[in-house]
Design a protein around this nucleic acid. Structure first.
Lengths: 335, 335
DNA sequence: CTGTTAGCGCGTTCAA
DNA sequence: TTGAACGCGCTAACAG
């Protein structure tokens, strides 16, 4: 039924060892026999069995990527970066979606490890004790990607979320705003949610302002929660003149809520986001935001992982990539 | 170094066969010994090696999914449907992005097959001769998902793209529009691009109208091409009163181009899309569109694949799911 | 209910 | 430059 290396060997009148050498580009094969083997392969339609190869060589040339939420544009872009570099180094990647559920993340890490991946890339949010426990059972390198663990135990590639948020709020301050609201992500997540909130707080404090309770609300990073939160801000007795949303999607929700209430962005209220997803330029007004180099995060993380898999020594295991303010149309100087 | 089934067997004073039974939930094990084995597994931190298992059993409980473009919201949603059903039947899925490049699609199909997946789900656009050739080398079932092949050789799950497009245009006609433009996708793709164009044509002809050359332009399904094409339509001497875009993203681009030109949607020009991605309600005005049941397409395709992998006989190998008009705010009755 | 024994398809010594 | 033989970790008969 299935044609094996052994069938090819017989067809070419060589031993299976020789076929193996040809398939693996081992130079120690006479060109003539190499040619014979190739012809046999062609004739029989032989396809190497990666499972058998993996068992024999203890390498699968595959890296596992756990992606928290496949329908999130950010992760999709990070994944592209991962992929390009993986292809470059001849690794296959297997992407596993975890649906934003921690329990599923752990499960997925384990199946990936069972499948004997040569390395693991973990993208996404909080790295909990349970995650660490799962990571610890691994005998292959692991790199965190677009996240970090607080204990700084694992190599990671990410931006400085606090600084990025601070720069967003600074821009608002620079435009004369003083009453600045924030649509935050969940604060339980230290590496993203809480860090971005800290950036907001820091920027305000640097400007001699302090965080007002009624100006901070927690969203879930989705459009609808941006809308709802903005509506809440609009109802305030003294409403904010500017809103900083912890990500672009909520920022866009906020813009629409403001417009739906008959107000204008940025004339009446300024809005700034964070991420710079493609959607940022697919709204009117186009969204001013702080860009996160998503593709690069993926690419650098994958490159780091290849080094680790290759047992090269790396100097810096925790890399921070630069963010950047992208000025578009949703922020105006306070009249 | 790595702990094997054999180590567990020694620790628990049983044979490796018994350990294998326990791990695979074979009922023929005395509860006592089962317990002993579990303890040994726990103590040694044993993790089954899926590669070895795959080689021995000739099953990997893994299905390969080739996804044309990971950053496309449609495919992400289809993938969710695939995943949920896969999990339900205890299959892992490995997602491989193909970057919208045919050559990479073929490559990915081959590596997936080398990895001995138990089945293959092919999502996406055109199914060429080269694809068929790659499919033919497979000994496992293949299901097309959100696409079909013209020769009707492979099982598939999709919508009726022509009918969906026709219904979109019919809605425009129903609202009194007669001068209706189309932003089409590439016509070389028979299953989506050309089919949707055919739907447009059919609807017009049913209404006694005919396709005017200047009212049809080809885009690439992206926002920017929607914008550009709409700008072209606006420059026409007799400009259209309504635009049908072959997907939501181009429709949104068109809306913004119209607004940027100082006109209003839908008062001056109506716009209708096709797909009903989340973005459709994340624009102002919200987009009227024809919904494609993306999650269901994935779910049904995966379910079909499980049946095929299980060698069950299926009655209908080519399923067409229903689309649906979603009325929102971007289409108005012609004044 | 449990153990013994063959392979699964391939990489990799070690000799020749 | 080539081949013979072993083993990777596990499942699946087959016995008992």
């Amino acid at each position: 039924m299935t044609v094996t290396i052994y069938d090819v060997a017989r067809e070419a009148n060589v031993s299976m060892a020789t076929v193996s050498r040809v398939v693996n580009n081992n130079p120690n094969v006479k060109p003539q026999t190499r040619k014979r083997v190739y012809e046999a392969i062609e004739k029989l339609g032989y396809r190497p069995n990666a499972v058998a190869r993996g068992l024999a060589s203890k390498k699968t040339t595959t890296v596992g990527v756990v992606i928290p939420d496949i329908s999130n544009a950010i992760f999709a872009e990070v994944a592209r970066g991962i992929e390009d570099i993986a292809n470059m180094y001849h690794y296959n990647i297997i992407l596993c979606n975890a649906d934003k559920r921690k329990e599923k993340e752990i499960r997925v890490i384990n199946t990936l490890l069972e499948k004997q991946v040569d390395g693991l890339l973990f993208m996404g949010g909080a790295v909990s004790e349970d995650h660490i426990r799962a990571f610890k059972t691994a005998t292959v390198p692991i790199v965190l990607c677009a996240t970090t663990d607080e204990r700084e135990m694992y190599p990671s590639v990410d931006i400085d979320h606090k600084a990025a948020a601070r720069d967003a709020v600074r821009e608002l301050l620079k435009q004369g705003h003083r009453r600045i609201a924030m649509i935050s992500g969940p604060l339980e997540d230290p590496t993203v949610g809480y860090a971005r909130f800290q950036g907001y707080k820091t920027a305000l404090e640097e400007a001699g302002l302090k965080v007002e309770e009624e100006l901070v609300r927690i969203g879930n990073y989705r459009y609808e929660s941006g809308q709802e939160t903005a509506r809440y801000f609009l109802e305030l007795d003294r409403r904010p003149t500017a809103i900083f949303a912890a990500n672009d999607e909520m920022a866009i929700g906020a813009i629409h809520a403001i417009q739906d209430a008959g107000l204008r962005v940025p004339e009446d209220i300024s809005v700034i986001g964070l991420d710079n997803t493609r959607m940022a330029s697919m709204v009117r007004p186009q969204l001013t935001t702080v860009a996160q180099p998503m593709y690069d995060i993926g690419a650098v993380a994958m490159r780091l992982l290849t080094k680790l898999m290759n047992k090269e020594t790396v100097q810096n295991e925790r890399v921070i990539l630069q963010h950047e303010l992208i000025t578009r149309q949703s922020v105006a100087h306070l009249a």
